[in-house]
């Protein structure tokens, strides 16, 4: 089963959001228009709008009211991907050429900035100060998270809390506020807004930890890039963190191999194997499950409506995904 199968009943509204996204990124400047549409048509799971819609069901759901925040959040996600590709010098995303590869860095910068501004314009539909306050804080937090990720690259002495704070800012924040803002835009109660935020935060944490596991155990075909990409770029994720903590020789090997100019691919593969057999994958899975449990607990507080089952199924899917 695919993730999208879990929210098939939202298809009509997702189509509305898709159309709204297309309308939103339109520009009179032809190349900006082309670049934005290229990005939009590269696809994506649209998981943030889905969280907005499902959370909106806990209030007075009206797609015409919630769609603006759903679009704003997806635009923020898209814009940050365009800029991430400049940061990572990435050529491909979802199997398609990135904007920076198809055109150049400057085009990617202008496209990303343009889309960020469009997101703010969409959010301006709401007069509720809380919507803006939540969104603006998250936007700043995402940037700070990414700055810290660069700061922490090749720093092998990180603590677990540093890693957790980074993935919170990098991934969990945007999912948490997607749920929260969906609830706010539909006028759900403060209590339910808070439960949904907690659900989103924990699902987001679990999602990112699984992503970090898959980066070690996935095949090149599944990942679309060689395994261990994070580590190769100097990003310390949970399996490696655990392995270093358990065995000092892993830390020494990571340091020697990844910071050496002459490290062979064989050395890197040996190192990845050492991390995989250190118990780091199992530990990360356990922690991911613990976050999922917290997400389920948050859901228990919510009224029993069909959207609740969907949120539960999405969380289960995320916990069990293999690629």
């Amino acid at each position: 089963m695919k993730l999208a199968d879990l929210y098939l009943f939202l298809r009509t509204d997702i189509n509305k959001i898709e159309k709204e996204l297309e309308r939103s990124v339109k520009s009179e400047q032809s190349l900006l228009n082309e670049a934005s549409l290229h990005l939009l048509r590269a696809g994506g799971k649209r998981i943030r709008p889905v969280f907005v819609m499902l959370s909106g069901k806990f209030g007075h759901y009206d797609i015409e009211k919630v769609k603006h925040i759903a679009v704003a959040l997806e635009l923020i996600h898209m814009a940050s991907l365009v800029h991430d590709d400049v940061i990572d010098d990435a050529e491909l995303r979802r199997g398609k050429k990135t904007i920076k590869a198809k055109w150049d860095n400057r085009t990617a910068m202008y496209t990303g900035d343009y889309i960020f501004a469009k997101a703010v314009e969409k959010a301006a539909f709401y007069k509720n100060k809380k919507v803006h306050s939540v969104l603006s804080k998250a936007m700043a937090e995402i940037c700070i998270g990414e700055i810290e990720q660069i700061r922490d690259q090749f720093n092998w002495d990180q603590q677990l809390k540093t890693y957790l704070r980074r993935i919170k800012r990098k991934t969990a924040s945007l999912i948490a506020i997607s749920c929260q803002l969906g609830a706010i835009s539909a006028g759900a109660s403060e209590e339910n807004q808070s439960h949904l935020f907690r659900y989103g935060y924990n699902v987001g944490m679990s999602y990112q930890i699984i992503d970090d596991i898959l980066d070690f155990i996935g095949t090149e075909e599944e990942l679309g890039k060689p395994a261990g990409g994070d580590l190769r770029q100097g990003n310390v994720t949970l399996p490696a963190l655990y392995a270093m903590c358990q065995d000092n020789s892993v830390k020494r090997d990571i340091h020697d191999i990844l910071q050496s100019d002459q490290a062979s691919e064989e050395n890197v593969l040996d190192l990845l194997e050492k991390i995989k057999t250190s118990g780091g994958i199992e530990y990360a899975r356990k922690l991911s499950k613990r976050y999922l449990q917290k997400a389920f607990s948050a859901l228990e507080e919510l009224p029993d409506i069909p959207a609740k089952s969907s949120l539960e199924e999405i969380a289960m899917y995320i916990g069990g995904r293999n690629y």
């Binding site: 960020f116 301006a124 100060k129 306050s133 969104l135 603006s136 700043a140 940037c143 660069i150």
Partner: peptide, 26 residues
């Protein structure tokens, strides 16, 4: 430098939004 120039610009941009909305200039 390139990586941080991207992120610093995004960060400054997020500040205009929070400056306006936190102070009631929606």
């Amino acid at each position: 430098h390139r990586q941080l120039a991207v992120l610093a610009g995004d960060f400054f941009s997020s500040l205009y939004y929070s400056m306006l909305v936190d102070n009631g200039h929606v």
